[in-house]
């Protein structure tokens, strides 16, 4: 992939819910092929940041540029159609449908049709291919079972499969590992790493810092909706602001963020 400017640029993005500053003046840029981790204590605005970028929540101020074009406040389906896919922290699946049917829905989108040269093609097979890649064995019953009957780890990977079906250029993972067992994380992490090595830009929001720090190039730390640190995993862990946010040591956060 040729590096032609940042794939994502967030400029002074803010969101207030009433008097609550959920996200306050957050700015960052993302290069093509980069793997960015976003961490922060509970309620620090990580999921709101994802919702702002993907259009599910309209920002109070600030702007978002994707592939050089402004996408601030655009409808979620338009942003997804440009190639910015996401997973949900609380998986949003169609539980009474067979697992593979869940993946067919993004395959029905105009984006996939365009990328396939104006044809949708055989959607069932395409869905099974994607699921097989995510560890749903093609020859087992698993892809055909109703999504509601699958274990939680599978549901998270099904959500990932659905995001990948859109053939995204940027993938945002909102706490993909929450609720997964150690072995499920261990089997999913290599998939994510491989996707990044194949050139997919990934933003990963995570509470499991050990796993996150192993795979990401750069980390962004949020607290009370503000960016308090940014840098490589080791740089970030040395920052006083991060230590105070995670360990509760009294440090002037405003001054650190400034």
């Amino acid at each position: 992939m040729a590096a032609q400017g940042p794939i994502l640029e967030v400029r002074r993005l803010s969101k207030n819910f009433g008097g609550v500053r959920a996200v306050h003046e957050v700015s960052f840029t993302l290069r093509r092929g980069e793997f960015l981790g976003v961490i922060g204590p509970n309620g620090s605005g990580k999921t709101t940041l994802v919702n702002l970028i993907t259009g599910f929540v309209k920002p109070s101020s600030g702007s978002v540029f994707f592939k050089g074009a402004e996408i601030t406040g655009k409808a979620p389906y338009k942003i997804a159609g440009l190639g910015l896919a996401r997973t949900f922290q609380m998986v949003r699946l169609f539980y009474n449908l067979p697992a593979y049917k869940n993946v067919i829905i993004p395959l029905c989108s105009p984006r996939v049709k365009r990328l396939r040269g104006g044809k949708y093609g055989e959607k069932d097979d395409a869905a099974i291919d994607i699921l097989d890649d995510m560890g749903f064995e093609r020859d087992s019953f698993v892809p055909y079972k109703p999504a509601g009957s699958l274990p939680h780890g599978y549901l998270k990977r099904l959500d990932l499969a659905r995001a990948l079906a859109l053939r995204p250029e940027l993938l945002i993972l909102d706490e993909l590992f929450s609720g997964m067992s150690m072995s499920e994380v261990a089997s999913t992490l290599p998939i994510i790493e491989r996707l990044n090595q194949e050139g997919l830009t990934i933003v990963m929001i995570e509470h499991r810092l050990k796993e996150l720090f192993r795979v990401v190039d750069r980390v962004l730390v949020l607290n009370f909706g503000m960016k308090i640190a940014e840098g490589t995993p080791s740089e970030v862990m040395e920052s006083d602001a991060v230590k105070s946010a995670y360990l509760g040591i009294e440090v002037d956060v405003e001054a650190q963020a400034g």
């Binding site: 993907t54 599910f56 409808a75 979620p76 389906y77 338009k78 997804a80 159609g81 896919a85 996401r86 949900f88 949003r92 699946l93 169609f94 539980y95 009474n96 449908l97 049917k101 067919i104 829905i105 993004p106 395959l107 029905c108 989108s109 105009p110 984006r111 996939v112 949708y120 959607k123 659905r162 995001a163 079906a165 859109l166």
Partner: peptide, 24 residues
């Protein structure tokens, strides 16, 4: 058909369908 599948998915969870790049 797949067309009907998308319609029923909109009933179940419209946000998930939107995140699939479909204009609900």
């Amino acid at each position: 058909s797949d067309y009907g599948l998308v319609l029923m998915a909109i009933r179940d969870d419209d946000r998930a369908v939107m995140s699939g790049g479909i204009n609900i």
